[in-house]
Design a protein around this nucleic acid. Structure first.
Ligand SMILES: [Mn+2]
Ligand SMILES: [Mn+2]
Ligand SMILES: [Mn+2]
Ligand SMILES: [Mn+2]
Lengths: 220, 220
DNA sequence: GGTTAATTTTAGAGATGTCTAAATTCGTAG
DNA sequence: CTACGAATTTAGACATCTCTAAAATTAACC
């Protein structure tokens, strides 16, 4: 039973994990949309995962991960985020390009490979987008959640995380020098945009809300 | 048609390439043994490869690569040997451990990944076992072919390549400090073994013919 | 509470890559 | 030159993961 997970099983587990961050059950259709497959395909994979005790499936009422399903998902997320960090730090990839490569390789690296890149990187806690990297023990560092748009106007913040789900936004940000760890001052808040001064150059940047929404910070 | 090759198709092409180094056709059974599958499975895969014009199959008379089959095989061998070199050089893998990891990853790295590790390694011509790495253009550097056992007794040589097909032999050699690029002097040749002095320490090592057979050198 | 629309599951099929068992072909030994 | 044994292919099956189309279930509205 469930020791050897196929590439597909791992993708489903990872997706279910992501979609159940709020600890509720996730409906079939949601998984289908995310993985770009038909709902019928999801149902049949869910059955297989349930047979392996990786998910809890209640017919017509969605699915949730079991403890072992959660572990398997976190293992895959660890691979993904370590790979992204490695591709960025050691191989010079742009942060907009790491996802695609990591999403394939995550299924095929060995535990030795995982350990070696983790160790070379100094066992990092966050990936290039600021997403937390689960430890080998499955413990997840805290996710930066304070949104740039929720910071009142005159305030200095450090950029801790960006939403990495849209490549365009990542390119927009890196083009303007906005990266994880950068310090900036929020100088003006309008209804549809926010203006920041980016340290150390004090370059002034106007960010549309659609972008500001995707940036998470710590106040200094 | 043959643009997108599956993992399996790539493994078959690589295997056929390896088994046709002598430019003859290779029989079905030989491929089956190498890939640990049944001859019937080889026949059905060969048909598919022939449909894609990657191999030339004459029923009951074996198979050979076409030009495009050869290119695809060399592309996979380039991935494999670059990965082995990278795992060894950048991640500190032992040369006995690189094969297994590279054999999986070779199918899943992108051309960008290939280019980046090649460039970081300084576009190496040989992998950690001394096997030649095909260029992006498919050109293969020369394979060191002078066997240690064929060198007359008092002679100084540089170790250029070892047969990497048996893990045990690789462990045996690295345990004794024998690596690619090492210089040694052949001091005695007996019928069942050869004695060498390994520079720079002048450590004397007696190698059984079964091992010596697997070492290829350049005379100095 | 019954009807209806959306969601979900079931049923059946195709693609891929493997297997076993049976049939075919080849080459050689008598 | 024929018959035999080995190699190879064919035939039919199974596992995996996907699809489309049809049936079943749910939930919500009147
Ligand atoms: Mn994936
Ligand atoms: Mn990321
Ligand atoms: Mn392989
Ligand atoms: Mn090698």
């Amino acid at each position: 039973m469930g020791v050897n997970l196929t590439h597909s099983m791992q993708d489903y587990l990872k997706t279910i994990y992501m979609l159940t961050a709020d600890h509720t059950r996730v409906p079939t259709t949601r998984i289908a949309q995310t993985l770009n497959v038909q709902p019928a395909s999801v149902t049949s994979m869910i059955k297989k995962l349930a047979d392996c005790h990786l998910v809890d499936h209640q017919s017509y009422h969605g699915v949730a991960l079991t403890e072992s399903g959660r572990s398997a998902a976190l293992e895959m997320i660890r691979h993904h985020r370590l790979l992204e960090t490695y591709l960025s730090t050691a191989l010079g990839y742009d942060w907009a390009d790491v996802h695609e490569e990591a999403d394939r390789l995550e299924h095929y690296i060995s535990e030795e490979f995982e350990d070696r890149i983790a160790s070379l990187l100094g066992n990092p806690l966050y990936d290039p987008h600021g997403d937390p990297i689960p430890g080998r023990d499955g413990v997840l560092p805290p996710t930066p959640r304070l949104c740039l748009l929720d910071v009142p106007a005159p305030a200095t913040v450090v950029i801790r995380r960006v939403d990495s789900s849209q490549r365009d936004a990542l390119v927009f940000l890196s083009t303007r020098g906005i990266t994880i760890g950068a310090t900036c001052t929020v100088v003006q808040k309008a209804s549809s945009y926010v203006v920041i001064d980016l340290a150390p150059t004090s370059k002034t940047i106007r960010l549309p809300n659609a972008i500001g929404q995707r940036i998470f910070v710590d106040r200094v």
